[in-house]
């Protein structure tokens, strides 16, 4: 699968708590090009995670449109969004969310169960995904036998095993030390530059955001400002 662009137009999102309306996104407009690596930054409550959920089809906007590739998400039903997610999006969470009773290979294999695929093909894809993240020799380890960085690598392998258009990472280095964070960010970078995946990453860490081509700063539900990482852009142009 190739990369997909992301376009948000006048996106509003509000939650209700005890009948009280809490606006999170207030007319957000945003475009992320196919194959771009974008970082989302902003204070707590600025709408970063909500934006990620909308782009990932986990939630729908109160108003406005969300387009990912050719799919217009706001008009899709719950079940259609579920099916769409399995084919077009890979999620990477801060706390990895691996199934503790399954091995690394089995965790990576899980999303492939949603595809009509021979067992041998599944195994091949799992091995490839684990090799890409550098864990080809840890296939039979369970999450509790892996370090935090290794667990996150398994989670990344699980996110890429279906070859999705878009990778959505919610603070992927938030629970890791500096050195391991760097390894994970380099891996995401490689997925972006070598495999052309569109990546949207929520982070609080400016160093992590520095790995992205562009950093989008959200504040009070709107795009406050954006920065282009010149070094990354230049490297991308050179390659």
């Amino acid at each position: 699968m190739g990369a997909a662009g992301i376009v948000l137009r006048d996106v509003h999102k509000a939650y209700f708590k005890d009948r009280l309306e809490i606006p999170v996104l207030a007319g957000l407009n945003l475009e992320i090009a196919p194959g771009e690596f974008a970082a989302l930054m902003g204070p707590s409550g600025s709408g970063k995670s909500t934006l990620l959920h909308l782009v990932g089809g986990l939630d729908t906007p109160t108003r406005g449109s969300v387009r990912v590739g050719e799919s217009q998400l706001e008009s899709m039903s719950e079940s259609a969004l579920t099916a769409w997610r399995s084919r077009h999006v890979g999620f990477i969470f801060q706390m990895y969310h691996l199934v503790p009773v399954l091995t690394a290979a089995q965790n990576v294999e899980l999303p492939l169960l949603l595809f009509r695929m021979a067992s041998s093909e599944r195994k091949r894809r799992v091995q490839t995904a684990l090799s890409i993240v550098g864990l080809g020799d840890r296939t039979d380890h369970r999450p509790n036998q892996l370090s935090g960085g290794q667990e996150q690598r398994v989670a990344i392998a699980r996110a890429i095993v279906t070859d999705p258009d878009v990778l959505l990472a919610d603070e992927p280095t938030g629970d890791l030390d500096a050195r391991t964070s760097e390894e994970i960010l380099n891996l995401l970078n490689a997925l972006n530059t070598e495999f052309g995946k569109t990546i949207v990453m929520v982070t609080h860490d400016p160093r992590a955001a520095g790995h992205a081509g562009r950093t989008l700063h959200l504040d009070k539900g709107v795009l406050d400002r954006e920065e282009v990482n010149a070094r990354k852009t230049a490297a991308a142009s050179a390659s």
């Binding site: 999620f91 969310h97 899980l110």
Partner: peptide, 14 residues
Amino acid sequence: IGEAATLRALGFSA
């Protein structure tokens, strides 16, 4: 509950 949510995020149905 976290695993259930993750499975749903991966594309498994309700």
